[in-house]
Write a protein that binds this DNA or RNA. Structure first.
Length: 276
DNA sequence: TGCCAGGCATCTA
DNA sequence: TAGATGCATGGC
């Protein structure tokens, strides 16, 4: 890991648990670095993040205008989670879930990063997804400092072939990454178009990409476009939801279903058997 | 050594 | 249209 001596941002954490947030399964763009720090990338920006009490310290290797705004939005620091947790507390089961994962925040990740990493997530393990994403950045992303790379732009990947991605060891997913890159680079699918569309149409547009099914589409909408009306679920999560909330998502989660979903998912993963 | 991973595409009936 | 099967790779 390169020594980073550039710009430092100190942001109020607002109760966020940085490690729990970065490694709860919503992002595959962060890795543990020495000294209790976490090295990560978002788009063509990178940071070395540390939790210091209720402050998040971000060392920025390539500082530029708008960094603070960008990272505040990324970590959802302007969302009042204390008020949200009070609201969720109106349902005893949901309150139990938020107690377990109290410091988790739903990140606002860049669209293209989220699309690529969740394409990689299918039939895969979190450590391996993180590894492939790291090799993708290292091989094709902009170098921001020695050993630190951002995510590649769609145009960079769009001109490559499957053979060019062999070093990623992403398996059958390589062709899906390239199709996604080409569709975005050609502006066939853009973040702006998705924001304009209603949820079902945005979902349908994303599922036009090879390798993107309903699960990946919903994760992209939730984690990069703040579309909390859609709820990503795999088969196991559907069973967990049915068991915990037989009547569906509790009314107190209305308007913040995606955030509630993240708490439920992490509680269920720690407390319910995977078999059902 | 074998199972399985926050799925999806493809094939078949 | 629904169900079955294969997929690449590596953590555990």
């Amino acid at each position: 890991m390169a020594e980073i001596t550039n710009k430092t941002l100190l942001l109020p954490a607002g109760g966020m648990d940085l490690e729990a947030t970065l490694f709860c399964g919503q992002s595959f763009s962060w890795e543990k670095a020495p000294n209790g720090a976490f090295a990560g990338a978002a788009g063509d920006r990178a940071a070395l993040a540390r939790q210091e009490g209720d402050t998040i310290r971000l060392d920025i290797p390539h500082p530029r205008a708008g960094d603070e705004t960008f990272w505040r939005h990324y970590f959802a620091l302007d969302t009042d989670y204390a008020a949200l947790l009070d609201t969720f507390g109106k349902d005893p089961t949901l309150a139990k879930c938020t107690t377990t994962g109290r410091g988790i925040r739903v990140l606002n990740q860049p669209f293209f990063d989220t699309l690529l990493t969740f394409i990689l997530s299918q039939n895969n393990h979190i450590p391996r997804i993180t590894g492939i994403a790291g090799r993708l950045r290292a091989g094709f992303g902009p170098g921001l400092a020695p050993g630190i790379h951002g995510f590649p732009a769609p145009e960079v990947l769009a001109v490559l072939d499957v053979e060019d991605l062999a070093a990623l060891r992403s398996g059958f997913r390589a062709k899906y990454l390239l199709d996604a890159a080409r569709r975005v680079a050609d502006e066939d699918i853009t973040e702006e178009k998705l924001r304009f569309l209603a949820d079902p149409d945005a979902r349908k547009m994303l599922m036009g990409i090879r390798g993107v099914g309903p699960k990946v589409a919903d994760c992209v909408l939730l984690y990069s476009l703040e579309r909390y009306a859609v709820v990503p679920m795999d088969v196991w999560m559907k069973r967990a939801m049915a068991r915990l909330f037989p009547g569906g998502m509790p009314p107190c989660a209305k308007g913040s279903e995606g955030i509630a979903q993240q708490f439920i998912f992490n509680w269920a993963r720690d407390n319910l058997p995977r078999g059902g």
